[in-house]
Design a protein around this nucleic acid. Structure first.
Lengths: 344, 344
DNA sequence: TTGCTTCATGTAACCGGTTACATCAAGAGC
DNA sequence: GCTCTTGATGTAACCGGTTACATGAAGCAA
């Protein structure tokens, strides 16, 4: 037997569909006895409104689409957690949409969202995402999170990657490091590019040697980077990886190679994913509150959906969380505001 | 200007809506020139079909709802990743639904899914979930994942928690442990209950001392458990936590207390979340392939949606991944099939 | 009683697609 | 030329809700 519809309830309660709708949605213009009667009948029939139909006639789905490139690792799980918390508070559902790196599939996916969601939180750090942004209809409220540059102004939320990288390099230099290796993220990734840029700038300014090794944001590429360096007997005293997973890979590889961290080589990452404080030595990293970041995107999107005008580009400035994997320096432990407790 | 509808396209192309629908959905009974013309017009107008309306008339949303109790930690992120991979392969979208522990909100949420999704993957390990299952309409295809017992038969997927716990205890005992502490998960959680039961059974059978300390599946409760034990100067040579996060908390606390792991106290967890191999000492744990587990749930749900008859209860048997946090014993390293490489 | 207001309830259009069925033109067979 | 078949196209009902507007009864004033 199929599910009961509003017309079934109306027939069974000998009223019109309008009254049923009114009774169940708490309209005031209905006699209380009638309302209760209709509710009884609805319960008896096990009536559950068809959300799809409701959405269609209300032109509102109470759902927001979350477009992310990937689901690997703790970064996305934290982001998603923050978004979910906020969405649920606002009575919104989350429709997940993973691009799996393929830009064209991203466009298709974006189209599939029409009429399914009220708005989108889009995270597309691939610099080739231009096409994607063009296919983002103006009529669809969207917040761009850590997205590659694009033409036109849109509500946007970004991590200040350059500042974060600069802060990490300054921290390493203050600890006495002079020959730094940067394990870069994917070349086509805007976050990776900006972190590299910040690294270059800071190293140049501080007169620190810099060597860049290509990575891909995965743990393995951090491991591979160290393998390469060790094979060459390269001379370096710090590794700054463009994200935490690569830093972890590098850290593990260094330990296996018998290199003392941080005494011989200091290691730092970026993102402050939860596991950074659990490994040993605990990883120094540039941190933003990922969950808060996600939550903020949802808040702004909800505003847009409600018609708010909002075209600002909002920045989050990472702070360096100094842990065991880099040399402590006096200023850090005591007075430097850059340091923050490990527990949030 | 609002988005173009199928009627706009029809008017602009001077054809009927039926023809537009046929042209865009690749029906064969339409003249190729007309089809192309309509497609051109649709492109020109930037027409994107309204998925909600389509869903309503097709009575199909190509979306599956994922109901989980929580989003904390890597277990759920891995599960979600597996489900997403599979769903995207099958052309399905994922609507996320986190219960945040509140059972009544779970029921509301479940109702909100009606007409929004074609089926559900439900993960509700709270033993108080009975109400939830009753509100799962029979007409809604659903796969239950690691759910508490309930009346009636449903398609289901479960981890054999008892067998997993038994295997861990056997592994610990084989390594010479005789006084084991079990950090239990939440009392109302079925996984926690079963893991406790397996632990009790195995300890009794093997003549091993067992002490149970209450935890809540969070890292902090693992830490707290060790604090309690140390304060009492308790005598124990192994800690088996009901999940990896508590094991990690315990491990950290032991290290801080200067207890040698595994020499003085061996530590084991359950779930094999990715970070278990990254911490040091690497954590021994009972493992199932979480992503595969999630993917399998999606496959079965897709089958149900397509009308397959499926009422089986499918089990996944965890295997013990022996790592540094427990004492190696000869059989393990060489011939015991229980051991498996750390990388998958 | 009549006329006016107020308010509960019903009727039917609408949201934006899909599709069963009707229609009509063209081609085939005689 | 006439009928029959075939295939492209249009018309309108339908999916399951919401809601503007119509209706009609009750209440009240004169």
């Amino acid at each position: 037997m199929p599910n009961a519809t509003i017309r079934d309830v109306a027939r069974e309660a000998s009223v019109s569909v309008a009254s049923v709708s009114r009774a169940l949605n708490g309209a005031t213009n209905i006699r209380p006895e009638l309302r209760d009667h209709i509710r009884d009948v609805a319960n008896r029939l096990g009536y559950v409104p068809h959300a799809g139909a409701r959405n269609l006639s209300l032109a509102r789905s109470s759902t927001i689409g979350v477009v992310v490139p990937d689901l690997h690792g703790e970064f996305f799980s934290e982001l998603l957690r923050g978004m979910d918390r906020q969405a649920s508070e606002l009575g919104l559902h989350l429709l997940l949409m993973v691009m799996h790196g393929e830009a064209d599939r991203g466009v298709t996916a974006l189209h599939a969202m029409r009429g399914r969601v009220d708005g989108l939180v889009v995270m597309a750090p691939q610099i080739t995402s231009d096409e994607l942004f063009q296919h983002l209809p103006r009529t669809m409220p969207s917040v761009l999170v850590n997205c590659a540059p694009h033409d036109g102004v849109r509500p946007e939320l970004r991590v200040d990657n350059v500042a974060g990288a600069v802060a990490v390099i300054e921290h390493l230099a203050a600890g006495g490091c002079r020959r730094i290796v940067h394990i870069a993220g994917p070349e086509a990734n805007i976050d990776a590019q900006e972190r590299l840029r910040g690294t270059r700038e800071a190293c140049a300014r501080l007169g620190v040697d810099l060597r860049v090794v290509q990575g891909d944001f995965n743990e393995d590429s951090g491991t591979a980077a160290i393998a390469t360096l060790q094979a060459e007997h390269a001379d370096y005293d710090a590794v700054f990886a463009a994200n935490d997973m690569m830093a972890v890979g590098a850290l593990m590889a260094l330990k296996r190679a018998g290199v003392a961290v941080p005494e011989q080589v200091a290691v730092a990452g970026f993102d402050n994913i939860p596991l950074t404080r659990l490994i040993s030595p605990a990883l120094t990293t540039a941190s933003i509150d990922i969950a808060e970041f996600g939550a903020r995107a949802v808040v702004r999107l909800a505003g847009l959906i409600d018609g708010a005008a909002d075209d600002t580009l909002e920045w989050r400035e990472p702070i360096v969380i100094a842990r065991e994997s880099t040399r402590q320096y006096p200023k850090t432990t005591t007075e430097n505001p850059i340091r923050r407790g490990d527990r949030e």
